[in-house]
Write a protein that binds this DNA or RNA. Structure first.
Lengths: 165, 165
DNA sequence: TATTGTTATACTCTATAACTATA
DNA sequence: TATAGTTATAGAGTATAACAATA
């Protein structure tokens, strides 16, 4: 009984709650892929707007976050985890490295690979960015209780990382 | 306690279940916006791949679907509901109209407005497209039971159409 | 021979502004 | 003066292919 579709992410995606309009009574309005597309446009729109004051976008923020987790990811790992082509990761690291937030280090066990490590300045930036992003997400998900957010997270995790359950 | 982030939609977004990898133990992996971005990349990737054999994409399919619901949407309504700029709707209608799937009709009550109506051929196309899309979505959401899908839909609806509950 | 990071290029989306015809 | 649709254009994001260094 699953239908389909997903759609666009536009300018002021997730600002206020606009008029649902006549079309919200259509079957499309209950379609999970459609809802997912709209929900993600709203959340990432809000997050991008909040991060803008630090000169970050969701993409660079994600990389910074992963670098800050102490796992020392390689660019290849970042590209796989973030669903980006390796060639798309390059300019993201370039920018963060240019700002002194991360550095590329040689992997002693494989000299082809570059390990991304966060700097002290990067850690400070990350701390501020996470606060801003949290606030933005809180707004994006304000219609849900804490319990509902946990449920949503669990369901999405099943979709994205099926075996992890 | 809500964190943040969302990411990219790449080539073979939602094909098989790849290795979660080391990074799936990071906090980002539990972040709702991140999960939402990955889940929507997977679902819309699958849907686009399935619709390709009909020469449709998720975008054009969505428009066709809404036109087929008998609400006679205007382009403005489509643009608001699909979160697309009015200028982005134009080429979508152009394409569907070029294929004879919909027509632009003048609104007798406001001659500025164009009402999009589905044709008989468009209805046949829509029927096939919905079958393909349903199958694709079933694959995208295969990790969830019917009940879980219903819960997910309800939660996403709260986010997207807050007052509708 | 395969893989990591990189560069280059083409293509699709997205964002903005301006124009027209109506209201 | 404001709105629906349209056109044009610039920018961001995405997809592909090729290359150097290393495995």
């Amino acid at each position: 009984m699953t239908r389909s579709v997903a759609v666009g992410s536009r300018a002021g995606a997730g600002e206020d709650t606009p008029d649902p309009g006549r079309l919200s009574t259509t079957a499309l309005a209950g379609d999970i892929p459609f809802l997912m597309a709209r929900a993600r446009a709203a959340t990432s729109g809000n997050a991008n707007a909040a991060l803008a004051e630090l000169g970050l976008k969701v993409r660079t923020f994600s990389v910074l976050w992963l670098a800050g987790e102490g796992q020392n990811p390689s660019q290849r790992e970042l590209s796989e985890f973030l669903n980006l082509d390796p060639s798309q990761v390059v300019p993201l690291i370039d920018e963060l490295e240019g700002r002194g937030a991360v550095t590329r280090k040689a992997d002693p066990r494989d000299r082809r690979s570059r390990i991304i490590v966060i700097t002290a300045a990067g850690r400070r930036l990350l701390r501020k960015a996470r606060a801003l992003a949290e606030a933005a997400d809180d707004r994006s998900l304000s219609a849900l209780t804490a319990e509902e957010r946990a449920t949503l997270g669990a369901l999405l995790t099943k979709i994205v990382f099926p075996r992890a359950d």
